[in-house]
Write a protein that binds this DNA or RNA. Structure first.
Lengths: 154, 154
DNA sequence: CGGATATCAGACCTACTGACATTG
DNA sequence: CCAATGTCAGTATGTCTGATATCC
């Protein structure tokens, strides 16, 4: 891998393996039936709450999925009354999505609902320094996700 | 969330959000057509290489998926000649899966193939301390994934 | 026979690509 | 007419659950 250090490659592998395994465990701990909303939906809702109304296309770009995939997420959130839509007054092609009062209140409390297991093991198994490491890692991962660096060979 | 600190809950949310977003970006950067094997397959192969032969049931438990899901993973690896199977001499019900020479050599080199993008951004955007944070976080995440703590309400 | 293992079949979730209508 | 947005339809992937056969 020209240009990337062995260290970086190792970090990439370790991180991906850990992510795959932790997500699998989380899936096993909280069956689909237990939760009404999936992660994409909750992340999108949180984004709408914190960053204000946006179009489906903008949300899709922010979350790195296709417009069509995001449209499905929005449809699910609308069906539950967590978000609503209205035509953009300035541009008739666009539809602005915004969080409803119900969506806002859910976004403030949803952690309890969905990641009960993860919260519990974090609180129970990790010391403050380790929790801090995870928080810092999460911030770094978001930075990587949003980087505009291109793969060399593309 | 009785018993879990607010801090732990926040860490859980941040971590899950970051994982979802980074995985989405990774998906966008390396289309499925680019790679012959998925993460479950590569993780399982790596496990067989480092920990020796195991049954499908054991592998499923270790990776937190169902036996049937793991069986599919194994089938794919066998089709590519990366692993092979032989009946357990001691217990006719079991089938031992082991990595072939080809599988071993792939496990040693596969990072380059699959996470080119991730390796590149890690090498390009993160300083050594940040890379270290990710490595430590990955180890902690594996610890959480394999913990035997139960969700309180189950 | 009961318990464990493996496998076959069908379903679902979530994302994807392609095609099309509408608006600016 | 072209570009951008939104939507409909079909596909693919990786997982799940349920049912069945085999072995100890």
């Amino acid at each position: 891998v020209a240009g990337t250090s062995k260290r970086a490659a190792q970090t990439a592998v370790e991180l991906m393996t850990a992510m795959t395994r932790l997500r699998a465990r989380l899936r096993a701990e909280s069956p689909l039936t237990d939760m009404a909303w999936n992660w994409s939906q909750l992340n999108t809702l949180a984004r709408l709450v914190t960053e204000g109304p946006a179009t489906t296309t903008e949300l899709a770009q922010a979350e790195h999925v296709r417009r069509q995939s995001m449209a499905e997420t929005i449809t699910a959130l609308r069906a539950d009354g967590l978000v609503d839509a209205e035509p953009d007054p300035a541009d008739g092609r666009k539809t602005l999505i915004y969080a409803t009062a119900r969506g806002r209140s859910l976004a403030a409390t949803f952690p309890a609902a969905r990641e009960a297991w993860l919260s519990t093991v974090i609180a129970g198994l990790l010391d403050p320094a380790e929790q801090q490491t995870l928080l810092k890692a999460a911030a770094i991962m978001n930075r990587l996700a949003d980087s505009n660096m291109q793969e060399p060979g593309r």
